[in-house]
Amino acid sequence: MHIVDGALANDVVIGGTVLAVGGIALGLKSLTAEKMPAAGVLSATFFVASLIHVPIGPSSVHLIMNGLAGLVLGWAAFPALFVGLLLQAVFFGFGGLTVLGVNTLNIALPAVIVYYLCRRGVASNSLTTAAISGAIGGGLAIALTTAFVAIALALSGDEFIPAAKLVFFAHIPIMIIEALVTGAAVVLARRVKPELFATFNRSTTEEVAL
């Protein structure tokens, strides 16, 4: 899902970078001193989660879990996922440097969208509703990410459109897997620590209220 340097048109790279910087700034603004350790540890959690491979057919894929990251972190998903992408590019050689902004946007904006669409459902009293909301969030985040990747490619040139379509359709099994995994993760988190999905973002409203 990483786009590499040299593939995209300059306008797309610049536009993506500007939007990503905006998202990161908003995310950092929401991070108070109280929330800093939680954001850091969660950022590391999602970094480790993205190293987990699950089987798919004869092969395996790594998890992305940006939907879950959005549900837990809200806007803070932007800086948290950016840090992950930066470390991956610098130390693992995944992705690229000039496309860091576009890649951040493609991963983190779906996370924030999922946060707004599914946060109520995930915090619902009914565990079934929570599980379904989590699954929808997990699947939707991947669908949006692949759609954004496809849009970034399609905006860069008509010759990329077939590849953009291929990227989207090739990711349908991954959307299903991420949906199942995210739904299960939400169920477990709700059972073990019911206030988890409220913890991180509730503290903001409380502080604002204070």
Partner: peptide, 12 residues
Amino acid sequence: GYLVGMMLVRAI
């Protein structure tokens, strides 16, 4: 999924 959820709980 349970594994990821557990990691999340422990992380918080």
